[in-house]
Design a protein around this nucleic acid. Structure first.
Lengths: 345, 345
DNA sequence: CAGCTCGTGGGAAACGTTACCCATTCCATG
DNA sequence: CATGGAATGGGTAACGTTTCCCACGAGCTG
């Protein structure tokens, strides 16, 4: 019943012996490096297959690459992030790289722990999704290892960025609601206090986009923002505040789908129905929004494209570390569902 | 504008020089190993802090441990899995271990790719959540590296398992519905065809539990199972089949919350309301179920406990590889919400 | 005081892979 | 036929850490 004495891993040396060549030769074949004849390649490949050899990443790491890419996600629960991850993994699918995710990165401290751990493990590249760390830490990381920052505006000479145009996204919503005849359109935002990153966060961009679009439509006086947080709880509390106004809004633009879920709850408690009494929109087009019984108008960020772009930029930077940084900005699209309707006369 | 010449990492040699001791000594301090006086410990610790030294996991891996735990998740989108992950990461929080997730493991082939990659990276332990690979592959893996399998029944002399009692969970549902006066209780299951794993999968356990509980309540003749899949689509199609019956069920036990979402859709199309016309239950108690506008009666699996148990067993096995394997079975609880109501007379 | 043991510290050889550089062969060129 | 260069293959020293051992001295025991 004892497990068989754990057999030693097949190494490059075993392959070399089996194929009757040097370890150098095997290494060259593995990396498609220059200096190996087709005949030798063939011979080595056969030995590799026969022995079932697999390169040991830890050993490779000691000499350079580990062929591992790390993705830091602030929260696996947010259904928007898997799309990004899929975009990244798809891109790396046919390469030797393996993508690994760091879990539980809520908050600056946890974020630092995970990213440090990734550096310690010799990862070849990092994709940081919506990080909350200060810029200085991001740049520190980017100095150590090729890095792409996703979902955060602003640019750095150290890392590439990929983000969706949140200003445009907010405008899509406001225009849609205004076109339906709404004037009192309120917004629930995520309160951002940290001055070092305030301008870079998507949430502040969304509220800025809201403000601009309201102005553009001549609704500047109707601008009404409640600051809570991008959580269900935040939506619930925000909606309660809005419903307590003397002049209630006729439409609410929640900063994220999560927030909209909380708003729905508050509205249900107040016996108000959507969209008859109040129109509601979310942001991120998560799977919640698509549920038929919720059917929330939302903004789609094309998570797959975001991920794919991040992966592309990262691979570029791994190949050519010195190249100037790039900022990719993607355009969101509006998904109209049943939670928005013309304003009551 | 050029990044500063990438500074070399601080190594154990630098620390040794700075503290005026040997590298061996530093290594001992790092691992709390025997053979270092308190005085030396103190001296080395100070140097480590001063230089900001961090051990390089890749190099450690070459000689033994990498202090990395891999979790394989079949699908990040399933809101049930994050609870498990949280349970695991919480357990490892105060240790030197770092948990990393493998993404995109849908299907046997992808699963094998990810697990192989984890082995190649010298991970110290693996937690496989609801794997679909055949037992032989799981045992092969477990031979290479300590492994815990989560959410799959049956036991092996090679790996530990943690699972929720799905038979008991299904019984909770059936009893709840029967107590409400329902007799025609139908079940939508995930069709399992692979004979090698059929008895081990949670889905088959759930339908078995359903059958038994129906018998127990004297409702054997009302047993009505539709086989589709554990997806929203599967729920939609399954519900359509059930609604086409001559004698429609008065309650539907969907095998997972996802399935229930699809059922809701089909019911809405058929202009049937929940729970007035039909009672509906899910399984897994995902965040969907808790949404107020859905409010689905479901079974909670205590994902955190599952994760914590898996972590504990894994750490045990890393410390003592030879010990006999353990099977942990946890008890689910019923969460009653508004989607179930007494059967119409 | 000889012979042990115990506590403390270090030397050096791994671990598996890659990168640098050199050696050999072969062929084309003058 | 001598020379040069390209093509091919290999020797070997790293990379950063751990582990096995050995050395040294102090404090015991008989």
């Amino acid at each position: 019943m004892e497990p068989p004495a754990q057999s030693r891993r097949v190494t490059i040396v075993d392959v070399a012996r089996h194929a009757q060549v040097s370890t150098t030769a095997v290494s060259k074949v593995l990396r498609n490096a220059y200096g190996a004849s087709p005949a030798m390649r063939e011979k080595v490949q056969r030995s590799i297959a026969e022995l079932g050899y697999r390169p040991y990443a830890a050993a490779r790491g000691l000499r350079g690459q580990t062929y591992t890419i790390g993705i830091m996600l602030p929260d696996i629960r947010n259904p928007f992030f898997p799309d990004i991850v899929d975009g990244v993994t798809d891109w790396f699918k046919d390469t030797d790289y393996q993508v690994l995710l760091g879990p539980g990165c809520n908050g600056e401290e946890a974020e630092a722990r995970v990213t440090e751990a990734m550096v310690d493990r010799g990862m070849d590249g990092l994709i940081l999704v919506a990080p909350v760390s200060p810029r200085s830490h991001l740049e520190h990381l980017a100095n150590l290892v090729p890095t792409v920052v996703v979902g955060r505006h602003g640019h750095s000479p150290r890392y590439d960025t990929v983000a969706d145009d949140d200003i445009a996204g907010a405008a899509l919503i406001v225009r849609h609601l205004a076109d339906l005849g709404h004037r009192r359109i309120a917004h629930i935002e995520h309160l951002e206090t940290d001055p070092t990153r305030i301008a870079e966060m998507p949430n502040t961009q969304r509220s800025e986009g809201y403000r601009r679009a309201m102005r553009e439509r001549g609704l500047a006086d109707e601008t009404d923002i409640v600051s809570t947080s991008y959580t269900q709880e935040g939506g619930y509390l925000g909606a309660q505040q809005l419903l307590a106004r003397k002049r209630r809004p006729t439409a609410i633009f929640a900063g994220s789908d999560f927030v909209a879920m909380g708003v729905l709850e508050a509205l249900a408690e107040a016996k108000l129905s959507v969209p008859e009494d109040i129109s509601l929109t979310g942001y991120d087009n998560t799977s919640f929004a698509a549920l038929r019984s919720i059917s929330l108008t939302s903004v789609d960020q094309a998570g797959n494209d975001i991920g794919a772009n991040a992966a592309r930029l990262l691979l570029d930077r791994i190949t050519e570390r010195g190249r100037p940084t790039v900022q990719v900005k993607l355009s969101p699209t509006l998904i109209v569902r049943n939670s928005t309707a013309p304003a009551a006369r």
